[in-house]
């Protein structure tokens, strides 16, 4: 399979502190990569480098490179908006806009130049179905998105992300604030989405990483400690440190 994303010797600084240190990762197309590691180990910072979301934080600096389909996303004059269209993101805390369910999804379509009302309606429906939310909200598309439950809001955010048909989806602990049933729905959804998208997910939940991912990367203090297919990481990790973490002895 192709390497969709190649992270090349990436180092990221907040001021003078490096939060991500010389990380090298290759992510295969249509696979799920889980990033695990204790809080503050740089997982979130790392995935926010992939859609250059860290650009909006002042006094930060990136060294190294990230390639998507072989092209550097840190190249001069690279259009960041285009990048973010290709690399969608679902955040830790669901963050629907204070608009209707319909408008939440239509927003991304509109700013990306889709004006035809019929097209928008079709794609809103399609992405809500894709996020397994359609049956629950089809009668309340014009109601406020803020009236949905936490789990529904997060799936709405996923629908919003897939509506603009990205190639890669980044998820930053998408289920950490949800109840077990909502979490299960999101996990099933991730399994379905894998067919069309390459997914990189940050999670604190070992079982979740084991259940949903094909590959797992363990990070500690900004360093990538070990990366392998998920089964290997959880059954016969190469390093003692990884074993201690995945078995819950530290972290």
């Amino acid at each position: 399979m192709n390497d969709k994303v190649i992270i090349n010797d990436l180092t990221f600084y907040y001021g003078n502190n490096s939060a991500v240190k010389n990380v090298n990762i290759r992510v295969q197309e249509n696979s799920v990569l889980a990033l695990i590691g204790p809080s503050g180990c740089g997982k979130s910072t790392l995935i926010r480098c992939i859609n250059r979301m860290n650009d909006i934080i002042p006094a930060t600096r990136t060294e190294g490179d990230i390639l998507i389909d072989g092209g550097s996303i840190y190249a001069d004059k690279y259009n960041v908006s285009d990048l973010r269209r290709r690399v969608g993101m679902v955040f830790q805390k669901s963050n629907p806009f204070p608009k209707s369910v319909f408008e939440n999804i239509a927003y991304g379509l509109k700013i990306n130049g889709i004006k035809n009302k019929y097209d928008i309606e079709t794609r809103v429906e399609k992405s809500l179905k894709g996020a397994a939310l359609w049956d629950e909200v089809k009668d309340r598309l014009d109601d406020s998105a803020l009236g949905l439950s936490g789990g529904q809001q997060q799936r709405l955010c996923i629908a919003r992300t897939i509506a603009i048909e990205p190639e890669i989806i980044l998820m930053d602990e998408p289920a950490s604030a949800l109840d077990p049933i909502s979490t299960q729905k999101i996990e099933e959804l991730i399994q379905d989405l894998k067919a069309k998208y390459t997914i990189i997910i940050v999670t604190h939940n070992m079982q979740q990483a084991a259940r949903i991912s094909d590959f797992t990367a363990f990070m500690y203090m900004g360093n990538l400690i070990e990366i392998n297919n998920t089964e290997a990481i959880f059954t016969k990790p190469g390093l003692e440190m990884t074993e201690n973490y995945v078995t819950g002895k530290f972290g």
Binding site: N51, M53, I56, S81, D82, R84, R85, G88, M89, F91, K93, N95, P96, F97, P98, Y107, G108, I111, N112, C157, R160, T161, I164
Partner: peptide, 18 residues
Amino acid sequence: VPKTFREASLSLGATRWQ
């Protein structure tokens, strides 16, 4: 206006001005 709204919008490919 929460930062999360800005992030959500930017992550969908919106420009700063949008």
